[in-house]
């Protein structure tokens, strides 16, 4: 077992670099698109954002990856595996992040919006100074949760040939016939990284907590 670890742990662990690259890029893409979807959702054309969010949330991510990687070339759009994976994960996460923002915005009491209106704020001023700063704070735990979800789901990128954490585990399993140990290492690395991010989020929440706020 020690020999197995010495020979293979580092090889597998190196995959976390690609995994994190995919995660960071797709999460950021999701953040940008999710914000746009929120803006769209709050506008009179709000139904358009539902037209995007519902199908994306109602279909498997793996199928979405296949549509982009195997399906788009038949429309003349050929993307490499890495770009396809980032795009699929990012487009998928955007739908979830938009929902996170939407429920956070709904969590701001109407009374505050009324008060901003009574002071003579424009809608955009209310959004910029009253709604968004609070909605972002409310969103932190759910956003970190979404980040961890994207990180775990990035393992699906292995099926279109990207050599990230999971794929490296597959290599080792295939070469050594010791699938149990190989995938256990993969699982352990995912767990440690996810745990660190979730834990860091609590510090983030504390840092941005509204002073004097005693609720959950």
């Amino acid at each position: 077992m020690v020999d197995f670890l010495v020979e293979n742990f580092l090889f597998i662990a190196e995959g976390i670099v690609t995994t994190l690259q995919i995660t960071l890029l797709s999460f950021t893409l999701g953040l940008a698109l999710g914000s746009l979807l929120l803006a769209l959702g709050l506008s009179p054309l709000g139904f358009l954002s539902r037209l995007y969010i519902e199908p994306v949330r109602g279909t498997p991510l793996l199928v979405q990856i296949f549509v982009i990687y195997f399906g788009l070339p038949s429309l003349g759009v050929k993307l490499d595996a890495f770009t396809s994976a980032v795009l699929a994960l990012g487009l998928n996460s955007a739908a979830y992040q938009a929902e996170i923002f939407r429920s956070a915005v709904k969590g701001i009491p109407d009374s505050q919006i009324l008060s901003a209106e009574a002071l003579g704020f424009s809608y955009l001023q209310t959004l910029r100074y009253v709604i968004l700063p609070q909605a972002l704070r409310i969103s932190i735990p759910a956003l970190v949760n979404e980040f961890v979800t994207v990180l775990k789901e990035s393992s699906l990128a292995s099926v279109i040939g990207i050599v990230e954490l999971t794929r490296r585990g597959e290599y080792v399993a295939a070469r050594t016939y010791r699938a149990f140990e190989a995938y256990l290492i993969v699982a352990l690395i995912y767990f440690v990284v996810c745990y660190l991010f979730s834990h860091g989020s609590r510090r983030l929440e504390k840092r941005f907590r509204i002073p004097g706020y005693t609720g959950a």
Binding site: A116, E117, F121, V130, Q134
Partner: peptide, 20 residues
């Protein structure tokens, strides 16, 4: 309406300050 409201003050029962 914005200009008109700017000429008035409104105090609510539940204060409605911005907590952040």
């Amino acid at each position: 309406l914005r200009r008109a409201r700017a000429k008035t003050g409104f105090v609510f029962q539940s204060y409605n300050l911005f907590p952040h």
